[in-house]
Design a protein around this nucleic acid. Structure first.
Lengths: 231, 231
DNA sequence: CGGTTCATTGATTCGCGTCAATGCAGGTGG
DNA sequence: CCACCTGCATTGACGCGAATCAATGAACCG
């Protein structure tokens, strides 16, 4: 399956928890690391599976989701290069992960990873910080899900994606939307129809405009901010 | 304000991150610790405030919330004895905390706490585990907010509170509900009226029954589980 | 005892979900 | 190269679940 990872040539390293590991630490981490690729829609792991690996996303987009017995789904996150996945409880994955686009990931053997964690100074601290940031984002998403209207949800979503692109060092403006309307709906607690209608309405109002490859151009960011009900 | 904390006599210690600190570590932690008390409805800290302290809840119930400019609120958590609070970004609190009942807390000076964290073996790991658990709970709450009906939300809420009481070593059955209908509504993404109507309906169906002091007795737990759409 | 806060219940409204039809690309096989 | 299929997006008509608006009751308190 996996082939050896050239950490030295990793171009997302600065955005991951690996960023400030020393060279000798990177070398040891590399020993328990493999690369994997996934095709669009391919399942990376399923909620409840035994968690053998933890992952950094290198290329592409991933969606994380949970579901109810009757099939209703909630997307709990979209991941892009540099993002970490593999939240675990009782050695089992806490959500399912699915490739949205073609995806390349860096997989660490969990058991050995957790040992290394104790040894490498500052690694736990860094992961703790990352976890805290995710928790804050989760709270923000609760506010969105519990209290925002469809319009506010879509506007917030576009602005959030734009902001995250900037953090990865990508342009803020044409926002790349590789996921389906249905994925967006499951992320925002809406239906595909409502998502579609809302996009259309924003287009009609000249706030956004379609761009190449399913990207969206934010024409009037100020208007979006206002619609999003920014705190 | 704060008075010295008798950690030795702490009766929630086993449920906090302090649980497996050594005696000498506890002694050092105690040096940066004070006790505080808050009356019902009193603000403990506000979102955006400079975070000088982190807290363990010793007694009572606390609610954590965020709000939008127009006053809409989202409760992101209810805390009980043994729970930790003080999620921080850029040295500022990420949410507001308010006493629901009379509350006693244990406050640690943040700056010094973070230093101690690096020194005490296993403390970061323990906090990381706690943070991961909270993240999982947050994802569960996203599923609830985005995809569950009012009935399912209320049923899930009651079962979750019951489950948490057990973890604190309290009886699972009469569930204590110290918060107002409005707080519950803001937690579940509903209105007070809908919360009230749903409780009434569950009472009429014989699934729950009022108990003393605003507690609720879960009469038919199986029915609740079914209503809650457990995964 | 009047005032305040919170809970409950009913009547009505409305945002979004549901149901249904159409369109549009991309892929496949004849 | 084109007919056909399949998956996804869009749009419209309609219905429903929860919000809104409104009134009353219950508990608490200075």
């Amino acid at each position: 399956m996996g082939t050896g990872p050239p950490c030295a040539a990793c171009n997302v390293r600065e955005h991951t928890f690996c960023a400030d590991l020393r060279d000798d630490e990177i070398a040891r981490l590399q020993l328990i690391t493999s690369r994997y690729r996934f095709a669009p829609k391919q399942l990376i792991f399923r909620e409840g599976d035994a968690a053998h690996h933890l992952f950094n996303v290198l290329e592409g987009a991933v969606k994380l989701h949970k579901s109810l017995a009757d099939g209703r789904r909630q997307v709990v996150g979209f991941l892009f290069p540099g993002d970490f996945m593999g939240l675990v409880r009782n050695a089992q994955y806490a959500y399912s992960a699915e490739a949205v686009t073609t995806v390349a990931v860096c997989g660490f053997e969990r058991a050995r990873f957790e040992k290394l964690m104790s040894e490498f100074a500052g690694m736990e601290k860094r992961l703790l910080a990352k976890c805290g940031d995710e928790l804050i984002a989760a709270h923000e998403q609760m506010l969105l899900l519990g209290r925002k209207s469809a319009f506010e949800k879509i506007a917030s979503f576009l602005l959030a994606l734009s902001g995250r692109a900037v953090k990865r060092g990508e342009p803020d403006n044409p926002v790349f939307l590789p996921m389906t309307r249905s994925d967006i709906a499951d992320y925002l607690g809406l239906t595909t129809e409502t998502v579609s209608r809302t996009f259309s309405e924003l287009r009609r109002k000249g706030v956004i405009a379609p761009d190449e490859d399913g990207s969206v151009r934010l024409v009037a960011r100020a208007a979006l901010n206002e619609i999003a009900s920014v705190t």
